[in-house]
């Protein structure tokens, strides 16, 4: 039995919106699970059902061997970090951290010990006497984390906690959250719509679309082996290139080139997916790209151009390679690293 089990969990809001469809998954003890997906796909809803902030319309949720469908949020022993932090504005940082402990009837000395430990871990010891309104965004973020950690809950739930921070701080906090989770070892679920955050934080990743889990796996599994066009397009940056084509007797024809011996028995219209980083320049390559735009990131160059009818085709090469706008490139796909999807439903067929 897993630590957290979701079994055919469904959420229908009173107004009839079906936000989550029969979702089942298991999260193991100590695991860092990330829910990723576009806005409105039901990530928050799923998380809030685990926290007990939304009723579960159908299905059941088990936490640590206990059916929690009807358990009050205050008795579930879960901690949540909200996007806007939801710090208690009238309490100082110390009391923000201590509040949950006080409600659990822990002695004053123990509370002080725990709060000080958590504050030290998050480097907020200096601010313990301040009100949240006197803290910077990053400091508030830490307090919100501290409030979750100090209680040593069964599970941490994060709902896009980094999206209010500036880019630099976001990367820094991302790293700290990961380190902290490894140190504390508490099972965590992290919701985000940022695929980089998802890839870097997750032990396992659930890609959600329209209230359904499209794919569940480790970040690398999902990157290497996307099961659908949606997942393929969502994970990976810059985005995978999609080309229209036709598959017939294991031969794929697309935008002026052909690929033979495709490992698929599918026949019909398909979408060919190629990641920008899975190509390299050769003499007589498969794909002929006329360059429109070069983005120099320093370490890498992103080359955008046209192949036959397809505009904005992206190719990624090391930053040392100098490529001029207007030049023509000849590209090959490395190690057959391409993906073929059924055009009608987006499912992977190779």
């Amino acid at each position: 039995m897993s630590f957290l089990e979701l079994n055919k969990v469904t959420k229908i809001y009173p107004n009839g919106t079906k936000a989550v469809h029969e979702t089942s998954m298991n999260v193991e003890n100590g695991e860092f699970m990330v829910f990723v997906g576009p806005s409105g796909c039901g990530k928050s809803t799923l998380l809030r059902m685990i926290a007990g902030l939304e009723d579960i319309t159908e299905g059941y949720i088990n936490l640590d061997g206990i059916l929690i469908n009807k358990v009050d949020p205050s008795d579930r022993d879960v901690a949540m970090v909200f996007q806007n932090y939801a710090l208690y504005p009238h309490m100082n940082v110390y009391n923000n951290l201590a509040y949950g402990l006080k409600n659990r009837g822990i002695s004053k000395e123990d509370i002080e010990k725990k709060v000080n430990e958590a504050a030290k871990l998050l480097q907020i010891s200096e601010y313990l006497q301040r009100k949240p309104s006197m803290l910077s965004g990053g400091q508030r973020q830490r307090v919100a984390m501290g409030r979750a950690i100090v209680r040593s809950p069964k599970i941490f739930l994060f709902d896009e906690p980094l999206s209010n921070l500036d880019a630099k701080l976001r990367i820094q906090m991302r790293l700290e959250i990961k380190k902290l989770q490894q140190k504390v070892g508490v099972t965590s679920i992290f919701v985000t719509h940022d695929q980089v955050e998802a890839m870097t934080l997750a032990d396992r990743l659930a890609v959600i679309n329209n209230g359904l889990i499209e794919q569940l796996g480790t970040p690398i599994e999902i990157y290497n082996n996307p099961k659908s066009m949606f997942v393929a397009g969502f994970i990976g940056s810059p985005q995978m290139n999609f080309l229209e084509g036709e598959l017939k007797n294991k031969t794929l024809t697309s935008e002026g080139f052909e690929i033979n011996n495709v490992t698929s028995d599918f026949n019909g219209p398909v979408i060919l997916g190629i990641r920008p980083e899975h190509m390299s320049q050769t003499d007589k390559g498969l794909i002929n790209l006329s360059v429109d735009l070069v983005e120099q990131l320093g370490s890498d160059n992103l080359i955008y151009g046209e192949i036959k009818n397809k505009k904005d085709f992206c190719f990624r090469c090391p930053g040392s390679q100098i490529i001029k706008k207007g030049s023509k490139l000849s590209l090959n796909i490395n190690d057959n690293n391409y993906y073929v999807f059924d055009k009608s439903n987006g499912n992977r067929v190779n």
């Binding site: 926290a51 949540m80 409600n103």
Partner: peptide, 21 residues
């Protein structure tokens, strides 16, 4: 904001405590 109530709930506050605290 609703999050304040939700956060308090997760921190173990019942209705009465939320009112007072």
């Amino acid at each position: 904001p609703d999050e304040l109530l939700e956060s308090a709930k997760l921190d173990g506050a019942n209705s009465w405590r939320f009112f007072i605290d």
